[in-house]
Design a protein around this nucleic acid. Structure first.
Length: 480
RNA sequence: GCGUCACUAGCUCAAAUGGUAGAGCAACUGACUCUUAAUCAGUAGGUUCGGGGUUCGAUUCCCCGGUGACGCACCA
């Protein structure tokens, strides 16, 4: 414990000696600070007594007068405390209050000579005593490691950070409202799954004692939601925490949030329009600035055909070519395909390096190779590709969608292909889900499905360049 | 997992080539009844991320380890 903390503990002990309870059970306030600021004209005119609570964040002492700023959520208000008004005894007591303490006050609003809205305090009491000092008032808390580890400090001190997280909630609410208004039904599906599926990823593995069985934390909820489509919940969605046992970087956290939604009788074209409309709902002004670039969500977004765009960059037709061909193209264009063996994986790498990275404005990459899309149905006209889109903004994949594969026999074959890939050493290939194929056997209507990455969407709409700045408690190693 | 960089007081940051570790804010004492990054006078505060080495002497140079940021790899 350092000296500052000792002094704060001493202050608490001194308050106890005066018979002051340092941790109150509640405080009935009449207004939030935000309300005081918004309705100040009313309060100034009518001379109304109000009660507010907040944390002391700065102090200016003048002998027998004290100015404190208290803060509740984001808003601050100045307090004016005079010894003659609150009394000698109270004035002695508040000497032991520290910056960081949470207090409740009552008084009347007025404006100082310099015009600042201020509460003229006639009663003050401590509601919760702080025993550690806050970061500095002017420079705030910059150390990113402390900001992530002790997010509460970040939130107390850095309003910009707090605003990002409040915006995150608004975005999620906006998506939920949008889907509800279209008749989608929100459901909950298992996080602990005996068979994982719905994405290419390695899972976290855990163990259930009572059944003595291995369970996996979900990497996606796709296969469960489509079972619900089979069951006749024709418009269904879920905000899902998914878990993928992979590396961490600016756009990846091992646990992340996706919203997946499925609509019976729709195809991927319908879903593109739905996504466009959803973003217009989230961004009514239609334009944002992300990392200094203007991004427009105006309809329609660009449609970028997977093979057409890639072929035009490399100057030859890669569809139906060979692994050897792809390797020579990779070499020619200086794309690192180390560790990628299959046709699909190399192709995907070429695409993301040569096409996707350069996409800035909201775009749908459409009609992906069948090799990398085992849950999407074959394109109605084009060979070798599926009806699929990925929503790309600023080079970042924020959504993925298919005309869902509802042919059980085709689906079974795709699973079997995946099992072959796994045997060839692809640890992220799908595992067989017999029950899912069984569900399709009972008949699934034609269906369009979409997954939207919430964290990345929040990054875009709050202009953050790291996923850690939009996840309240990003995964970090323990300090020691 | 690999590479580069960072880690100094509660916070934000300094300390040429190796030479007693400093400032601002915060804290403490005193003055001050409209201040607002209040002001003025004084005081205190450190395992320089941890461990080893070189050296008369290490925040500084070398080695090992920790955590983080960034890049690469893997992925959404």
């Amino acid at each position: 414990m350092n000296i500052l903390e000792k002094q704060m503990v001493e202050n608490m002990e001194n308050l106890k000696k005066l018979g002051v309870e340092c941790y109150k059970y509640n405080f009935v306030f009449t207004h939030t600070i935000k309300e005081l600021i918004e309705k100040q004209d009313d309060f100034l005119e009518k001379d109304i007594q109000v009660k507010v609570a907040g944390r002391i964040v700065s102090e200016r002492k003048h002998g027998k007068v004290i100015f404190w700023d208290i803060k509740d959520q984001i808003e601050k208000i100045q307090l004016y405390i005079k010894k003659d008004i609150i009394g000698e005894k109270k004035f002695e007591e508040i000497k032991y209050y520290d910056l960081g303490d949470i207090i409740g006050v009552s008084g009347k609003l007025f404006k100082t000579h310099s015009g600042e809205l201020t509460l003229f305090v006639n009663e003050v009491e401590i509601l919760s005593k702080a025993l550690k000092p806050l970061p500095e008032k002017f420079h705030g808390l910059k150390d990113v490691e402390i900001r992530y580890r002790k997010r509460y400090l970040d939130l107390i001190v850095n309003d910009e950070s707090k605003k990002v997280f409040l915006k995150r909630t608004q975005i999620i609410n906006g998506i939920r409202d949008f889907l509800n208004s279209k008749g989608f039904v929100e459901v909950e599906t298992p996080i602990l799954q005996p068979i994982y599926g719905g994405a290419f990823a390695q899972p976290f593995v855990t163990h259930h004692n009572a059944h003595d069985m291995t369970l996996y934390l979900r990497i996606a909820n796709e296969l469960y939601l489509k079972r619900l489509i089979v069951g006749g919940i024709n418009r269904v969605y879920e905000f899902a925490k998914d878990f993928r046992n992979e590396g961490i970087d600016r756009t990846h956290n091992p646990e992340f949030t996706q919203v997946e939604f499925y609509q019976a009788y729709a195809d991927y074209n319908d879903m593109m329009e739905l996504v466009e409309d959803m973003f217009l709902k989230l961004v009514p002004e239609k334009k944002i600035i992300y990392q200094g670039k203007e991004i427009s969500f105006e309809k329609p977004w660009n449609r970028v055909d997977f093979y057409e765009s890639l072929n035009s960059v490399v100057g030859e037709d890669l569809k139906g070519s060979s692994v050897e061909k792809l390797k020579s193209v990779a070499k020619k264009f200086n794309v690192d395909i180390e560790g990628k063996k299959t046709f699909g994986k190399i192709l995907d790498e070429l695409f993301s390096e040569l096409v996707q990275k350069k996409i800035v404005q909201p775009s749908f990459v459409v009609n992906h190779p069948i090799e990398i899309s085992p849950l999407a149905r074959k394109h109605r006209e084009k060979d070798g590709v599926v009806e699929r889109f990925e929503a790309i903004v600023f080079g970042m994949e924020i959504g993925n969608s298919f005309s869902e594969l509802n042919d059980p026999l085709d689906q079974k074959e795709r699973f079997l292909k995946q099992i072959e890939e796994r045997k060839l050493g692809d640890v992220e290939a799908f595992v067989m889900d017999e029950d899912y194929v069984d569900a399709l056997m009972y008949g699934m209507p034609p269906t369009g499905g979409v997954g939207i990455g919430i964290d990345r969407t929040v990054m875009l709409l709050t202009d953050q360049d790291s996923i850690r700045d939009v996840v309240l408690f990003p995964l970090l190693k323990p300090e020691k």
